[in-house]
Computed example of a mutant assay.
Amino acid sequence: MIRVLIADDEAFTRAGIRAVLAAEPEFEVVAEAGDGREAVELVAAHRPDVVLLDILMPVLDGLAAAAEITRTVPATGVLMLTTFSADEHIAAALGGGARGFLLKTGDPLELFAGIRAVAGGAAFLSPAVAHRVIQQVGGDRLASSARARARVDSLTPREREVLALIGEGLPNAEIARRLHIVEGTVKVFVTSILRRLEVANRVQAAIVAYEAGLV
């Protein structure tokens, strides 16, 4: 069972997400929050596996809430909910500890996949969000497409395989299964990839994978 907390200032949106998740028995919604401060407090109280966090919320916005949740309850994975109108905030969330990004208007199957990935410690970017993130951060925080390919070329062939699977949002256990290696070896590869790409987390590594054309 994956325990989920929904944080969005629109009650209609919260109800819709809860109804979608109710269709899958592996998910349990443990609480709902209407603003960022309440989300932080409820995460501390319920310790969910994943918090679905709207970027634009009153009292404490999603960016600040994500950073505080990551600092105080690091075991809870933060999955940001965004709209195209909030593009300018996505790059900032990358540094706040978010493990993934989803469109509110996206396919429910992406929601399921994103929650599973983040609960498993992996990164997840819906394809539409990944494209927009690359557009937003490509000019400064991340290198251009050519630069990304050059950075990826510095990796070993096996590291490139692992990076591509990180870009698909797979957790270490699934990467190990796909590549027929032990999970401990995957962890070593992930650590090396983050260091060699000079990125802070799996989300940023996944964006490099997208930008370099691995995904």
Rank of each mutant, 00 (worst) to 15 (best):
D54E: 14
F112V: 11
A65I: 04
I90Y: 09
A122F: 09
V29E: 09
V20N: 04
R147A: 03
E198F: 05
L81E: 13
T72C: 14
V30N: 02
V50M: 04
L79V: 07
P171E: 15
P25Q: 01
P171F: 08
R71I: 00
G120I: 12
R132I: 12
E68G: 12
L52C: 08
P157W: 14
L197C: 04
P171A: 10
A86Q: 10
L56D: 12
V203A: 14
E159Y: 08
E168N: 07
D87L: 15
R149A: 06
V59S: 08
T83Q: 14
D61S: 07
V215E: 10
E41P: 06
E161G: 14
E159W: 05
L21N: 03
I207P: 01
R37L: 05
E32K: 03
V29W: 13
L111N: 11
E10S: 05
L5H: 05
T156V: 10
V129A: 10
A205I: 15
V78E: 11
A205P: 14
K187H: 03
T83P: 14
V78K: 14
V162K: 07
P25G: 01
G97H: 06
A64T: 06
A143S: 06
L103R: 02
V182C: 10
P127Q: 01
E159M: 09
D87M: 15
E32F: 13
L5N: 03
A130Y: 10
A11F: 08
F84G: 02
A39L: 13
S144T: 10
L155C: 05
A15H: 09
I6G: 05
I134C: 04
D8M: 05
F189R: 00
P157H: 14
L165R: 14
P48C: 01
I17S: 01
D54T: 08
E41I: 00
I69D: 04
S126C: 02
A31F: 12
N201H: 09
A176Q: 09
K187W: 03
P48D: 03
L79W: 04
R18Q: 11
A22I: 02
A33C: 10
